[in-house]
Amino acid sequence: MAADLGRPMAQVAVNWAANRPGIGAVIVGASSPAQLDTNLGALGFDLPPEARQRLDEASDPAVNPPYSMFTPRYQSRIVSPGLSVGDKPAGYAPPLVNRA
């Protein structure tokens, strides 16, 4: 998928993870300034919806009890009506990167 998008795998992975519901931060590791620049490049593009869906499906593991209690479907049964679980808050904006 990364090749189809013309992006390094690390950028696609970081971009996808940073835009997943319920993830407020992504920790990246880099062993060189060039690798750090590559990772930070993940914040400069949007994954196409079909790519996001393919990654979501590929990473959706079967969740067995008792861990199924942490899934959005289970949580929606116990959370007050009108609230959602796992989505970023309204008005969420990606972080600004200070490269100075």
Rank of each mutant, 00 (worst) to 15 (best):
M1C: 07
M1H: 12
A2P: 01
A2V: 05
A3G: 02
A3H: 09
A3P: 01
L5W: 03
L5P: 04
G6C: 12
P8E: 01
P8S: 07
P8I: 05
P8A: 07
P8T: 13
M9G: 08
Q11G: 03
Q11S: 00
Q11A: 11
V12K: 01
A13T: 01
A13N: 08
A13Q: 02
N15G: 03
N15D: 11
W16V: 07
A17W: 09
A17S: 14
A17M: 12
A18F: 11
A18K: 02
A18G: 10
A18V: 05
N19R: 15
N19H: 14
R20V: 12
R20T: 14
P21S: 11
P21E: 13
G22C: 06
G24F: 09
A25P: 00
A25Q: 13
A25D: 03
V26E: 10
I27K: 02
I27Y: 04
V28C: 04
G29R: 04
G29I: 07
G29P: 00
A30T: 09
S31G: 15
S32L: 07
S32H: 07
P33L: 10
P33D: 02
A34Q: 15
A34L: 13
Q35W: 05
Q35R: 15
T38C: 05
N39E: 08
N39L: 06
L40E: 03
L43A: 06
L43E: 04
F45R: 05
D46K: 09
P48T: 11
P48Y: 01
P49T: 10
P49Q: 11
E50C: 01
E50V: 04
E50S: 10
A51M: 10
A51R: 05
A51Q: 12
R52C: 01
R52I: 04
R54E: 15
R54D: 10
D56S: 04
E57R: 13
A58K: 10
S59R: 04
S59C: 11
S59P: 00
S59T: 14
D60R: 14
D60I: 00
P61H: 06
P61V: 13
P61I: 13
A62W: 05
V63E: 08
N64I: 02
N64E: 13
P65F: 10
P65S: 11
P65L: 09
P66M: 04
P66G: 01
P66S: 05
M69D: 15
F70V: 07
F70C: 06
F70N: 09
F70P: 00
F70D: 03
F70M: 09
T71Y: 04
P72H: 06
P72T: 07
P72E: 07
P72D: 01
R73Y: 08
R73F: 10
R73P: 00
Q75R: 14
Q75A: 15
I78Q: 03
I78H: 08
V79F: 15
S80Y: 01
P81S: 05
P81H: 04
G82Q: 02
L83F: 13
V85Y: 14
V85K: 06
V85P: 02
G86N: 09
G86I: 03
D87M: 06
D87E: 12
K88D: 05
K88F: 06
P89Y: 08
P89Q: 11
A90M: 11
A90R: 15
A90E: 15
G91S: 10
A93E: 13
A93L: 14
P94H: 05
N98I: 14
R99T: 12
R99D: 12
R99H: 11
R99S: 13
A100K: 07
A100D: 13
A100L: 07
